[in-house]
Design a protein around this nucleic acid. Structure first.
Lengths: 341, 341
DNA sequence: CTGAAAGCGCTTACAG
DNA sequence: CTGAAAGCGCTTACAG
C-alpha cells in the first residue's frame, strides 16, 4: 500500500522511525526504556513498532555490545543417554537468561571438536560448555580460548578449568547406606567396564562406606564386566554359586541390575525379600519396567547442566570459579529394595 | 609488547590491516580470495591474519549479507528418544554446510514455543526446523513467519507447509512382509496407545498388507494398550489363550515386543521356532538385550533429520518443496525372526 | 593493484 | 525532550 511495504525483510529502526515520525535514536531510546523521552512520543513509537512487528536485530546489538547472548554447547555424543539430560538442564538455565544455545556434536572426534570450536568463536559466543560422553576426565582445551569454558559430565584434567560432575564416589556410598538401611549386610558388587571412571568411582565409594561400618564386599572385590544385562545375568549366577549367603547386590548400572533381577527371578530368589538389588543411573525405562521395579541412584544430570550453565554465566560476568564442582546424587527407591515389615 | 597487544578481544580486520601495512578493504579482499590483489600482498595479509589468529566476525558478516548461516531447531521434547536422532541428522547435515544450529526446547508448551520462535527470529536465523515429540500431526505455525519452516517427525496439519516423517504405514507393511517371508501366516498384532498415529498407522499398513495376501490379523483386530513391557506381557498371554495357533506377533514398539518375548519364554514357547516376534523403533538397548534379540523396524530418524535440513536449505535458497515427505523405514533382522532350515 | 567511502542495524555520548 | 554523528566489524562498488 504505502511505500513502507517496499522495505525488504523484517522491519528496522529506520522503518519504525519513519512511521512514528521521529529519529532512529529516539526510537531506540523509547523502545529500550531510556530516560528523556516524552511519554506521548514513547507511546507513538511503541505503537509503530508493534504495527511493524519490529524486533531488534540481535546481530547488530551484539556487534555493538561486544556480547551476543549466545553460548556454544559442544557435545561429544548427541546420541548418549547421559549427555541429553545435561543438555536439557543447560538449555533450561540459559533460557531463563534468554541466552541462545548453539548445539554442536563433535562425535568424540578431536578434529571435529576444534572445527566446531572455531566456528563458535567466529560467531562470537560469550562462552562454551564442553559436554563429555563418559565421566572419565578429558583433556583441557587450554587457556588461550578467548571466552570462558565449562566442562560438564566429563571433568577437565586441568584443575584450573571449571568442571561440573555428578559425585559418583559419593553415589557408591549412598547405595551402600541405602542397602544397610534395608537391613542388608552381605553385599556383592557387579560393576561395569573397569576402564570407566563411573564404574571404579562408584565401587570405591561403596567399599569405603562398607569399611566405615566394619564391613566389606562379599568376595572382597567388585566384579567388572560389560554395561549389559547379559553380564548382569551371568555374573549374579556365578556369585550365588560361590556366595549363597549374599542378601544385597549393588550394580554398576541399571542395565546390569536388570539382568541381575531377571536371573534372580529365574533361579527362584525373591527380590526384595531374599535379596535387595540396586542399580545406578535411574534410567526410567529400564528401572520402571524391571520385575520388580528397580531402586537406583539418580545422577541428577539436569542439575549438572543447570550448574554448568550458571558457572559459565558467572565466568562470563568475570566471576570464574575454577575446580571440579560436584553434584550430589540421589537415591530413588522402588520395589527392589522395598522393606516389608 | 607492541601496541597491537592493547586491542581488546579477538583481532579485527583493522588489526590485520595495521600489521600487514595495508587497508582493511585489501585485507578483506585478500582473505576472501577476491581478484585484484597482488600475490605478494595476499601472502603478507595471510601471514598477518594467522599471526593474530584472525577469525572474521560472523555477526558483522551476517549483518551485511542479510544471511546469518544459522538455523533454529525447535524441539518439543529434548528428553525424547525419538527427537534426538532426528536432531543428530539435522545437525549433521547442517554441519556439512557450516550452518550453526540454535537449539530450543519448548517442552510441548505452545507459549514457550512462541517465545523461542521470537527469540530465533530476532537472532535472524535463516530458517527453522520444528521437531515434534510424537508422529501425530501438529498445528502449523502459519505462513506469516519471515523465514522458511520445516516440520520433522510430526508433520504440520497444513499441506502447504514442508514436513518430513517416517512412513509408518509402510512400516506396518514391511513388518508383515518380513513375517510372511519367514513363513508365518497366523499373525497377531499387539499395538500401543491408540491415540498415537504411530500406533494406528502401523496397524493400518499391516492390515492392508495382509489383505493383499488374502490374510487378516488373528482375532481380526489389533490389541491396543500402553507402550510398555507390562502390556506386552499381559496381552500375549491373553492372545495365546484365545488363539493358540498364532505363529507370529507384531508389536507396536520394541518395549511391547520385549514384554511379549519375556512372557513367551515364561510359558515355554520357543522364539523364533514356535513364534516369530517383531517390534518397531529399533531401540538398540532394548532390542539387542532381549532374549532372543529382537527383529524390528527402524524409522531412520537420522535420515528424517537430514532430509529436513536439506529441505530447509532448499527453501532458504528459494526452492520450497511443500507437502509431506516420507522416509521409508527399514527392517532390522535379529534372532526373534531368524529362519532355521 | 590499492584504498577511501558508504552502509548493514543498532546504541550511545553529545549538541541543540 | 530530540536528533545528527560516530562507531561496532565487515564487504562492496567506486575512484585512483
Amino acid at each position: 500500500m504505502d511505500d513502507l511495504s517496499a522495505s525488504r525483510g523484517p522491519a528496522t529502526l529506520k522503518d519504525v522511525a519513519k512511521l512514528a515520525g521521529v529519529s532512529i535514536a529516539t526510537v531506540s531510546k523509547a523502545l529500550n526504556g531510556r530516560e528523556h523521552v516524552r511519554a506521548e512520543t514513547r507511546d507513538r513509537v511503541r505503537r509503530a513498532a508493534e504495527e511493524l512487528r519490529f524486533s531488534p536485530n540481535q546481530l547488530a546489538q551484539g556487534l555493538l555490545a561486544g556480547r551476543t547472548g549466545t553460548v556454544g554447547l559442544l557435545t561429544s555424543d548427541l546420541e548418549g543417554r547421559f549427555s541429553i539430560p545435561v543438555m536439557m538442564g543447560a538449555e533450561d538455565a540459559f533460557g531463563a537468561d534468554s541466552t541462545s544455545v548453539f548445539l554442536c556434536d563433535a562425535r568424540g572426534d578431536a578434529i571435529r571438536e576444534q572445527h566446531h570450536l572455531r566456528a563458535l568463536l567466529s560467531r562470537r559466543v560469550d562462552g562454551v560448555i564442553i559436554l563429555g560422553d563418559t565421566t572419565n576426565p578429558r583433556n583441557s582445551l587450554g587457556h588461550d580460548i578467548p571466552v570462558p569454558v565449562v566442562y560438564a559430565y566429563a571433568p577437565s584434567n586441568d584443575d584450573s578449568d571449571i568442571s561440573v560432575i555428578s559425585d559418583n564416589v559419593d553415589a557408591g556410598r549412598l547405595a551402600v547406606e541405602h542397602l544397610l538401611d534395608c537391613g542388608r549386610s552381605r553385599i556383592a558388587y557387579i560393576s561395569g567396564d573397569a576402564t570407566y571412571a563411573a564404574a571404579t568411582d562408584r565401587v570405591a565409594g561403596a567399599k569405603a562406606a562398607l569399611q566405615k561400618h566394619g564391613l566389606e564386599l562379599v568376595g572382597g572385590e567388585a566384579l567388572y564386566g560389560a554395561w549389559t544385562e547379559g553380564w548382569g545375568r551371568a555374573a549374579v549366577r556365578t556369585l550365588l554359586t560361590r556366595f549363597p549367603e549374599i542378601d544385597g547386590v549393588l550394580c554398576g548400572s541399571d542395565q546390569i541390575a536388570r539382568g541381575v533381577l531377571d536371573s534372580l527371578r529365574e533361579v527362584g530368589k525373591d527380590v526384595p525379600r531374599d535379596i535387595s538389588v540396586m542399580g545406578h543411573d535411574n534410567w526410567e525405562q529400564i528401572a520402571s519396567q524391571s520385575r520388580p521395579a528397580l531402586s537406583t541412584i539418580d545422577m541428577r544430570l539436569q542439575e549438572v547442566g543447570r550448574v554448568a550453565a550458571r558457572l559459565l554465566f558467572a565466568a562470563i560476568g568475570g566471576d570464574a570459579q575454577p575446580g571440579v564442582h560436584k553434584i550430589t546424587c540421589r537415591v530413588v527407591t522402588r520395589d527392589s529394595t522395598a522393606v516389608s515389615d
